[in-house]
Amino acid sequence: MLASLSVVLLLAGAAFFLGGSVGMLRFPDVYTRLHALTKADNLGLGLVVLGLMLQAESLAAVGKLFVIWLLLLAASATASQLVASWAQENGFAPWRG
């Protein structure tokens, strides 16, 4: 039961990683691509981490997985802001559709 829930979460996480990567390839400019990367990948990793937590052998391992997710959230929020600000400063006009 726990193992199958874990598998479902891992597969769902993988689907969001795929969605993020497809968005990264299909979206028209740097800003929209950042949307795809930050949101889909954070959610994807969150689900993968949840799935792995169900299979963890100790409480410390569960905590470690959680900290990994927090660090990725912080890194991706900061990195996307830096990339977007850089693009702004260097005159990359956003695609308007």
Binding site: A15, G19, G20, G23, R26, F27, K39, A40, G44
Partner: peptide, 9 residues
């Protein structure tokens, strides 16, 4: 947010 951007992609 993740669902939204994945569906759009």
């Amino acid at each position: 947010g993740g669902l939204d951007v994945t569906l759009r992609a």
